[in-house]
């Protein structure tokens, strides 16, 4: 059974359908890609999963439990963590405190309790952020700021990690290194749902990919199947373009 199941999700903003009967699943210990052009509904799906947005119909199931009506903080406590496409860092805090406060929040409800201070240092090392730890989070480059968001999410020791364009702002070498990190997290048993425009990263790390366009699922399959899918090529390149 998949760890996360989104079944028949529908979301409308006025007359525009942001999600149209979307089904997405994610398994523990695997990285699932979620790709599509801008405006396809990827972030809307993340918002539905984390509870920042309520779907007009459809259900979100985590570990066999219907969480569709739960508020965001309760979903987090069940093991969902995320990053944001538009950075949502705590701009008054340093890099270290951004990560540490996540551990301190988690230590209020998580058992066994982990020392947030020690865990913060471990996560800073894991993400190679140690040299920036005492910098104001508004002063660091976007790519590093996205890593801070990942670190913050990891402090909650999630079952599933929803990453919204985490490689954006990182250079090629950093992206490569970041891909290895994702594979390492995945090997530890975490499920990862990855929204990313860097197709090479998606193809490298994902075991399964869903493709959205205009709020609907237009394809799903392994990276190789997706790469060869003409509908996906049309969505990305336009129907009149030569592949």
């Amino acid at each position: 059974m998949p760890l996360l199941e989104c079944q028949h999700l529908n979301v409308a903003f006025g007359g525009a359908k942001a999600l149209n009967n979307v089904d997405v699943t994610a398994d523990s210990g695997a990285i699932t890609g979620l790709i599509g052009p801008n405006g396809a509904g990827k972030t809307t799906l993340f918002n539905c999963v984390t509870g920042l947005l309520h779907p007009s119909s459809g259900v979100v199931v985590l570990d066999g439990r219907d969480i569709t009506r739960l508020p965001p903080f309760k979903r987090s406590r069940l093991g969902i963590a995320r990053t944001f496409q538009r950075l949502e860092l705590f701009s008054s805090l340093t890099v270290r405190d951004n990560i540490r406060v996540a551990g301190e929040i988690a230590s209020r409800w998580q058992r066994p309790r982990v020392d947030p201070r020690r865990e913060t240092e471990r996560v800073l090392d894991l993400l190679a952020l140690g040299h920036l730890a005492d910098r104001d989070v508004t002063e660091i480059p976007t790519g590093m700021a996205r890593r801070v968001e990942v670190g913050r999410a990891l402090m909650t020791r999630p079952k599933i990690l929803l990453l919204d364009e985490p490689a954006s702002g990182q250079d090629e070498a950093e992206t490569e290194e970041f891909g290895d990190l994702l594979l390492q997290l995945c090997a530890d048993g975490i499920a990862i749902l990855l929204v990313e425009h860097d197709v090479s990263l998606v193809m490298k790390v994902c075991s399964y990919v869903h493709v959205l366009d205009f709020g609907s699922t237009i394809a799903r399959g392994t990276p190789n199947e997706i790469q060869a899918n003409p509908v996906v090529l049309d969505a990305y390149l336009g129907a009149d373009q030569e592949p």
């Binding site: 920042l52 965001p72 903080f73 406590r77 860092l89 705590f90 805090l93 406060v101 929040i105 999410a153």
Partner: peptide, 14 residues
């Protein structure tokens, strides 16, 4: 402070 800076991020941290 975190709540002031980003309520949405706080909520998704539990």
């Amino acid at each position: 402070i975190a709540m002031k800076d980003s309520p949405a991020a706080c909520a998704t941290l539990g």
